[in-house]
Design a protein around this nucleic acid. Structure first.
Lengths: 245, 245
DNA sequence: CAGTATTTGTCCGTATGTATC
DNA sequence: GGATACATACGGACAAATACT
């Protein structure tokens, strides 16, 4: 019948009002909020309350205040930064297994590559080719990994879907965090890198030909070959069936 | 040669330390933080600084303080609530379109249904059948929607992948947030619900038969038919090609 | 059940470092 | 370089809310 009520703090109402003004467009990105002292009088609350509200808004990536700036706190444009932060937090807290992460990444990147093969522009194709050359020219593992990130990022951007870009980015980062040391200490590192490079070259050709299904399958295969060794036999079998799906 | 430095506020360092303790498992969900006065002395900062840090942690869903509780702020378990909040924010700020959201959901649920068709147990199949019956028996829109959620959740759980469960849940919630009013005010609501129910029945049969590809395609088709009307013609064309992929 | 002690929520005042004009 | 206004951080204070005895 009735809903339980929770007391609404003063700082929360300040947050709500400023949030609402931003969403309604009355406060555009780049514009400035009144100073903390002005906000005190406008909201009729103390300085501490205003500050707590500003800290919350800052933590959510909506405003940014700098000490001594007479123009007041800046209203920031919406960005997926906080989305990435909260997703990373969740992944870390849930302590998900590497198999789950890798499975998710195979599904996600498979879809991403399929879309990218259809929607990519010539300029984006050039970006991917440049990243692939950087991978081939890379001497150390760090440079190779950076170029790899650039390649995947170019593909994700080609999908023109913010969520795919962010999710791919986050999951890739978490996977790397989990087994970065294993990769760096691999005995047959050179052979792995060559095989990985070959995979990317094949994928790129599929994207060039706008063959989405092939690109998706090759992308899943590359992930499986590169990371699958770190899984149990049972998990390897499960993921192997995903490659050709 | 040198990296640019940005001043690190006192409250941020407090946040970092508490966050790190939670991630490292030294602070488990349900346990209590020291009182604000104890935190003052432990961190060597003023009470305002401690409070700003606690507000940030509370905004991120990691702790919860209640006025007058001598046990101190409670450490909360990880929850996808903030993930959903930040994603909704991006949509409201119009830096992410409904088309992107729906596209992502079609990819995600397609993969989920494919996996679920392979991995589902008989018990999970029974859950889905029960949810489908609840949808058929539902009188109002609210009950119908609740049963729909239960159905999708049972499918997501059948994948045995936490990330898929969470992401599906979050994206579904954000989509509903965006167009809940449009759905509730639809003139041909009854017809929509009947068509939606028929789709689910077909999908369930595919899951029963362990036909992953068919289940995935039917799931994408259901989403397109149910939500596609809210998109522009160009976006509809793009998503239509996704259905049969 | 009531009293008490503790904690949070909020306010005020002040000192200090900083960015802009 | 100086003046001004700002954010940062500190300390003290009181009322409301909560838990425990």
């Amino acid at each position: 019948m009735f809903e339980p009520v929770s007391p609404v703090r003063a700082y929360e109402r300040v947050v709500e009002q400023i949030e609402e003004a931003v969403f309604a467009g009355r406060l555009k990105p780049g514009s400035r909020l009144p100073s903390e002292r002005d906000l005190m009088t406008q909201f009729g609350v103390s300085r501490s309350t205003v500050r707590e509200a500003l800290r919350v808004l800052q933590s959510n990536g909506m405003v940014q205040s700098r000490a001594g700036d007479p123009r007041g706190p800046e209203v920031l444009p919406a960005s997926p930064k906080t989305l990435r932060k909260s997703m990373s937090r969740l992944v870390r807290a849930e302590s998900m297994s590497l198999a789950e992460l890798l499975q998710f990444r195979m599904l996600m990147e498979g879809s991403a590559y399929q879309l990218a093969a259809r929607l990519r522009t010539d300029a984006q194709l050039s970006e991917m080719e440049a990243a692939l050359r950087a991978m081939a020219d890379a001497t150390g593992h760090a440079a190779f990994s950076d170029a790899d990130v650039a390649f995947h990022d170019a593909v994700a951007r080609a999908t023109q879907n913010t969520l795919i870009v962010v999710c791919s980015n986050v999951v890739r980062g978490v996977v790397l965090d989990s087994i970065a040391d294993s990769l760096a200490n691999a005995t047959d590192q050179q052979a792995l890198m060559r095989a990985y490079l070959k995979h990317h070259s094949d994928v790129l050709q599929a994207i060039r030909d706008r063959d989405g299904s092939l690109a998706a399958q090759l992308a899943r295969q590359a992930l499986y070959d590169y990371y699958g060794r770190h899984l149990s036999a049972a998990d390897q079998n499960l993921l192997a069936t995903l490659v050709t799906s």
